[in-house]
Design a protein around this nucleic acid. Sequence first.
DNA 1: TTACAAATGTGAGGATTACTCATGTTTGTG
DNA 2: CACAAACATGAGTAATCCTCACATTTGTAA
Lengths: 211, 211
Amino acid sequence: MEGLSGSQDGQIASPRRAPSQQRSRERVERMLAAASALIAEQGSDAMRMGEVAERAGVSIGSLYQFFPDKRAIIWALAERYTAESQACIAAALGEVSDAEGLRRAFSELVDIYYGRFLAEPVMRDIWSGTQADKALRELELADSRANAEFLTAVLKRLRPTADPAALETTAFLIWQIGEATMRLAISVGRQEGDRLVAAYKRMALRELVGE
Amino acid sequence: MEGLSGSQDGQIASPRRAPSQQRSRERVERMLAAASALIAEQGSDAMRMGEVAERAGVSIGSLYQFFPDKRAIIWALAERYTAESQACIAAALGEVSDAEGLRRAFSELVDIYYGRFLAEPVMRDIWSGTQADKALRELELADSRANAEFLTAVLKRLRPTADPAALETTAFLIWQIGEATMRLAISVGRQEGDRLVAAYKRMALRELVGE
DNA sequence: TTACAAATGTGAGGATTACTCATGTTTGTG
DNA sequence: CACAAACATGAGTAATCCTCACATTTGTAA
């Protein structure tokens, strides 16, 4: 139920026991709380298993009794968060029945989601990847800005009267979600990936050159 | 020029010497080639520095003579790739002067970019993150599909005559790029982040409920 | 109550791996 | 040809994840 077994796919280490006694359930809660605090303070990359155990007031062996490895702890924290998120979405979109309702519900949902992202340092850290990836992300971001400028330049030529700042934001966003779409496309099957890229292309062109 | 110094920001280890002799330049090339091959075979996470050195026919010390740490090698490979990409973009968008030209150029650029993604196993690996993140990404992907289904259900209700598969793709894409936008938004400043989320919201709503 | 198996708790130590550094070798150059 | 700077080496260091043999606690059935 809490993803403690950690056998979601072939990449994960051997499963561990789920706590069945009151005492151990409380101890597992302390472990998760300690991990959460450490991630908020220093990031998941700098979180040390020994430190988690120490702060939770348990031995390192107890930690590994319930979590097969380091990522299982992060996994468990992420699962709780995403379960909450899913409840938000179901509440927001469940009863929509017309276009105006969708507009309002979606608009509100985006705000709520964004607010949750901003408010949860642990999730911000987890979803933004390890330290090594963060450094690479900086490189990617800088490149992406440079690349988006080519698009910005074109848009400024085609729409001289539009607000330049808005054009920059649009170009940057279109470029970034293009890269995100391609990363997504290569992580799903080839067929679905192709469809997603095609859908992105239509959406981006609609934004760039209109209907 | 090749990013060997690795002092791009505060997070990176001490800089290293750049090769100045013919011999060492060739050796550095062999190191990069070995790293590239190993990443293509097993992924950057499983790439061992000792293995890179062995396959390049150099000692581990020589590796660290030119690369301050493991990510610097990955960094150097990524830089080469992105430099090539930037040339593609400049060529495709540099001379665009009207809407129809933009439509054609952008459409072609997306195809080229996607093709490059598909063709480069090393880049696919690097941009998809470490092993730990890949497992988390699976979780995120599964959740994202579940979340997108709420949106799909709404769309199917609002557009009963549309192709259901197309609606599913649209909903999934909109959801995924929404999450990507928020990750982007929290990694840039708050002000720009807010603008990007607002721009995403406009774009998504345009797609969902029309003009 | 007591016996006993299952669940839980412990932490020293094994195993792996990124990275260092003292020392030796090669290269360009005045 | 002398000599400094660049280059090469690999055994060793440090950090950290994780294991495992053994100790303790808990639930439960006789």
